[in-house]
Computed example of a mutant assay.
Amino acid sequence: TLGTQTDYRDGEAQTDPYSPEYIVRSGSVPELLTLATLTWGRGLPAGLEEMAMIDRAREKRAWEASLPPMDSPSNTAKRLKMMEEMERKEWAFREQEIEKLQKIRLEVLKKMLRRREENQDKVDAKRLCDYWQNRQRAREEKIKKIRHDCALMLRKLIANRKNMMGKLDRRDIIKEYTDFSSQTYAPLSRIGFFPDNNSDYYAVKNFYLNTFAGLCELEASLPSSVIQLKIKAPKPKSIMTKTGFIKRSARLEADLAQVHQ
């Protein structure tokens, strides 16, 4: 198979950059191969951290090249000492990296806790608002009931004051029918009369008007003179009198027609 690479690609369809095949000569270690662990999206394109890692790798290769050979006890001791120093430096660098990661994780954890507290505050505020609305609704209903009971008791007190002596008054039918605000004409709903409940009682319900069969029967019962329309042409008005003269109204109409012409 052959690998191809074009210069013009859409950003939405761009895949990973093309990496051609290579052959390493024997005895050579190219510096570029030390970056084989970096891939597109994971270290590439290189940032500040990747550049620092590349610099450290170069320094380590230079340090490895500067190590003395192990051909004598003094060189061996010197080599061990240099390796111990490098190991301490690497451990110190790793500790710094671990502290940096811990700080980043701590910041992320703080943000998550802050977001959770904000969400919890919103939930608590909504719960308090719902509780306050329910209490307000219950309060309004209670006030409404108290006012209703107050009006009822006032009506009872007024009715009792009218008959303080406890006498029984007979019903005055004439007075009730002469007073249009009495219970006869305008009964109150609180005594059990609801005029709107029987509003359809006065509606006209006719079999001949509400059903199709009734309409057909009504049409069959009508005389033909009502169903069949007869139009008679009007007779023309006579403009001559019995003696043979033209009527005055006809002369006026003729004069008006000449004026309009």
Rank of each mutant, 00 (worst) to 15 (best):
G47F: 12
F180M: 08
V24R: 15
K175W: 01
R135T: 04
A57Q: 11
M53W: 11
V226M: 14
P195M: 12
G166I: 09
D149S: 07
M82D: 06
W132Q: 15
D55G: 01
T39H: 03
I98E: 04
G41V: 09
R248D: 09
E141M: 10
L154D: 15
R115M: 09
R135M: 10
G192S: 09
L128I: 02
S221L: 14
E87G: 03
A254V: 03
K205E: 10
G166Y: 08
I227N: 01
P17W: 13
N134M: 14
A57C: 05
L109W: 06
K89H: 09
E50H: 02
A62L: 13
T6M: 02
Q258H: 03
K100H: 07
E217D: 13
T178S: 04
L101C: 00
K156F: 09
L157Y: 06
L48I: 13
K103T: 07
Y185E: 02
F207N: 07
L80N: 11
A254E: 07
Q5R: 11
H148R: 10
T211S: 15
N119P: 00
R171E: 06
P30A: 07
R25I: 05
I54T: 04
T243V: 02
R127T: 14
G244R: 02
V123C: 03
S199I: 15
E217K: 11
I158V: 11
P68V: 06
Y185F: 15
L106T: 04
I158C: 09
P30Y: 10
R137I: 14
Q228K: 11
G11E: 12
E87K: 11
P187M: 08
K111E: 10
Q102P: 00
L222D: 01
K242V: 04
Y201N: 14
R105T: 04
R137F: 12
M86E: 15
P45S: 03
L188I: 05
E141N: 05
M164G: 04
E49M: 06
A36V: 09
L229E: 04
Q183V: 01
K242P: 00
I23L: 09
L229G: 01
A36I: 09
D172Y: 05
D7W: 08
Y208N: 09
E12I: 08
T6G: 03
K78H: 05
T76P: 00
T178K: 09
S26T: 06
I143G: 02
E85K: 15
L218I: 03
L209M: 12
Y8Q: 08
I231F: 12
K162T: 10
D169A: 11
M240I: 09
L222H: 08
S238K: 13
H260L: 15
I239F: 05
T178V: 06
M51V: 14
L109C: 04
A220H: 07
